[in-house]
Design a protein around this nucleic acid. Structure first.
Length: 224
DNA sequence: TAGGCCATCTGGTCCT
DNA sequence: AGGACCAGATGGCCTA
């Protein structure tokens, strides 16, 4: 969860400044790991899995979804006895039609979750962070939080751009001496409130993205 | 070893 | 009735 805590503030600073590389180091500092990452996105149903996979494993899923062979009933019974995932809470044996219905429901649910993961992958592809084989994929929650902050940042930038255009339209451009007040909103400090190296108080960082749960901000955790 | 993240199964609820 | 969605439970894998 450590990486999540760093996403709300610092991570997005990196995004706003240089995207990929800096974002990778800041947003994913805790996420970066060995290249032998988990690779959870594509469960290998045909991999080197134990003959009697534990419930919850991809192999177990394959077995349960009807991709198994003749020993499916044995496996199902085994799973039922173990009372793991895939085993009815009451532990009763199902009639065959109920079981096949369950299998189709399971398969549908699996497909739905795969679609959800595909969409998440699509989101990862468009939010700015280091897309590199050496950088572990963003977790689901990190992806969502980063995307949310990215949207907020873009909205803020757009708003400031509009105000800048309005200011230029009503004034005569920036050639004339500019009062501090009108330009203040367009200052670097406003656009990127927590610049690299200049650590702002946590309250300032959190204020930039009000929706960010404080529970996910390590700075808040440290100071509260 | 604990904690984080994940896939999967399951039963419940809601909608068409 | 069937499908979509959701949340809880469970166990596996990986990292610190």
């Amino acid at each position: 969860m450590a990486e999540l805590k760093s996403l709300s503030g610092d991570a997005f600073l990196a995004l706003s400044h240089g995207y990929a590389a800096a974002a990778a180091s800041l947003a994913l500092g805790a996420v970066q790991g060995s290249e032998a990452g988990r690779g959870y996105s594509a469960p290998d149903l045909g991999g080197e899995l134990p003959a009697a996979p534990a419930p919850g494993t991809p192999a177990a899923a394959a077995e349960s979804s009807g991709e198994q062979s003749g020993d499916e009933d044995d496996a199902f019974e085994q799973r039922r006895r173990r009372r793991g995932p895939g085993v009815p809470a009451d532990g009763r044996r199902r009639p065959r039609e109920q079981r096949s219905l369950r299998l189709s429901i399971n398969a549908r649910e699996r497909r739905r979750m795969h679609d959800l993961n595909d969409a998440l992958d699509g989101l990862r592809a468009v939010i700015p962070y280091a897309h590199s084989p050496s950088v572990r994929k963003l977790s689901k929650i990190a992806t969502l939080l980063l995307a949310k902050n990215y949207i907020l940042m873009q909205a803020q930038a757009l708003d400031e751009m509009r105000r800048l255009v309005a200011y230029l339209n009503q004034g005569q451009g920036l050639a004339a001496p500019v009062a501090a007040a009108p330009l203040a909103p367009f200052s670097q400090a406003t656009a990127y409130p927590f610049s690299a190296g200049a650590a702002l108080p946590c309250a300032d960082k959190c204020a930039v993205f009000p929706g960010t749960p404080s529970a996910l901000c390590k700075h808040c955790d440290e100071k509260l």
